[in-house]
């Protein structure tokens, strides 16, 4: 008996050790397969993302010069998506040399902007050059974008006494002699400023400038104003022009249809503090029905209780 037991125990031990050996072998194999991936100098998960940089120039109505940057990076799905926290270096060309003027960090939407100085160094053709770079960023591949812009001036004139309501935009650039000269064939877009953006003034709101650098547009007389006085702010824009970038100008006049306030500013409605009468009636019937049911049940219970007492 004892010998048999020993033999059985030995068999079990042998089986267990074999199983252990198998498991060890599998684990070692997995480790060996994974080892090259772990030791790779620049593994897939640590690779820098392919980036894209867009640089544009904006001259606002207050004549301030600005640059706008958009940084995107290719994500896992292969799409270019906004790249946040990218470090950007901004350079300006002066005497054929690039000078670093500022470093920026892109926001969550991959955007960054900066205001430029009023007196920018220009080349012989009156252009100034800006360059933006992504350099040595731990997350994004290097990228650069250059922009060569010529300064222009856009003025918008409205004559408040004009019954035809003509908008006149004039585009000029500085000539080689330093004097302003008209810009021909520049596309000017006319908008009306609204609370959340700009609304085109009409269907054909894009007008090209003539030989005198002027673009005119007759403002429709039925545009509603955003106040009771009839004030309208008209915006003229040259958008993403190859030579001048984006240039804005604005002017105001009482050319809008004044806003008429209703007598009752808060009529009864679902989205107002005062509910509509039909809704009040509906809920009164529903809740009244529910409470009536409770009372009826209680009444019945009392009745049953009193009847049993009498019996």
């Amino acid at each position: 008996m004892e010998t048999n037991n020993r033999i059985n125990v030995e068999r079990v031990e042998h089986k267990t050790s074999e199983k252990m050996k198998k498991t060890n072998f599998i684990l070692t194999a997995i480790l060996l397969i994974c080892l090259p991936f772990l030791l790779v100098k620049n593994p897939v998960w640590a690779q820098k993302k392919e980036s894209s940089l867009q640089l544009s120039f904006l001259k606002k109505a207050d004549q301030s010069k600005n640059i706008l940057l958009t940084v995107k990076a290719r994500n896992e799905a292969g799409k270019f998506a906004p790249a946040p926290n990218a470090s950007l270096s901004i350079f300006i060309k002066s005497n054929e040399e690039w000078l670093l003027i500022k470093t920026l960090i892109s926001d969550l939407g991959g955007k960054a902007s900066m205001k430029l100085a009023d007196d920018l160094p220009m080349d012989n053709e009156k252009y100034f050059s800006i360059m933006a770079k992504i350099e040595n960023d731990s997350r994004y591949e290097d990228a650069e974008e250059e922009l060569r812009v010529k300064e222009s001036r856009l003025t918008l004139l409205l004559d408040p006494t004009d019954t035809n309501r003509i908008l006149t935009a004039t585009v000029t650039q500085t000539g080689n002699d330093g004097e302003p000269m008209p810009v021909q064939e520049a596309e000017v877009k006319f908008y009306v400023e609204r609370l959340f953006g700009k609304m085109p003034v009409g269907e054909e709101f894009v007008v090209a400038t003539d030989a005198a650098g002027k673009a005119t547009y007759a403002l429709p007389k039925n545009i509603p104003s955003s106040d009771t006085l009839g004030n309208l702010t008209i915006v003229a824009v040259i958008e993403n022009n190859e030579t001048f970038g984006t240039v804005e100008s604005n002017a105001s006049a009482k050319w809008g249809v004044p806003l008429q306030w209703e007598k009752d500013p808060f009529p009864r409605a679902l989205w107002e503090p005062r509910a509509p009468p039909a809704m009040i009636l509906f809920f009164a019937i529903v809740f009244g029905g529910i409470w009536l049911t409770y009372f009826f049940v209680i009444f019945q219970l009392i009745k049953v209780h009193s009847e049993t007492k009498i019996k």
Partner: peptide
């Protein structure tokens, strides 16, 4: 498709497939 055709235009991230 973007300015340089790289598929990085302003609307590229709104499209379900990579441009």
């Amino acid at each position: 498709h973007g300015k340089k055709g790289r598929g990085d235009g302003p609307k590229a991230s709104d499209i379900e497939k990579p441009v």
